[in-house]
Amino acid sequence: MEIDIIIFVLLVFMAIAALIAVETKNLLSSVISLGAVGFGLSMAFLFLRAPDLAIVQIAVEVVLLIFLIRATISRDTIPETGRIRWWGLAFVLLLMAGVLVFGYFAFHDLGNFGEPIISAVKSTPSNLYLREGLEKTGAANIVTSIILDYRAYDTLGEATVLFTAIIGALAILRSRTKTDKGERKK
């Protein structure tokens, strides 16, 4: 019960920070509010007993903040002007109301928070990993034993995504260009 209150407070804080990030005119304050959302998410992961995710979230958040601040700090900020389209707003509000009603009925019959249904059955993969993870892989950290042993193929896919992104960025933004005749030009 106690953890519910902490998570609720963190979620309200993150929602307010996200609203500020969307609505503020200044780009730099928007970026800093986005950082507040990330750090709130990291604390939420920590309270939900996922220290691996919390470490990754806080490290990536710091790097992302540096990138975004360096990208925005020297730019001129252009305040956006325009009128609100009321029918669009009404449509979005209707859609959100529908999702909320659907979510209330969909989550009504689920189990309590922190007691996943899948752990009630002994032979599910998650229980298997928890029971046999240490002796089969030698890794005491179950998260690592899953992402680098049981599900290493997924991790290879993630590494490929990162590699392809870097290759694309380097190919587009290379400092040396080629002319039409194919000779290298500095």
Partner: peptide, 11 residues
């Protein structure tokens, strides 16, 4: 120590 304690290659 990614396989013993929280952490790992990415973080």
């Amino acid at each position: 120590t990614g396989h013993l304690s929280p952490g790992g290659g990415f973080s």
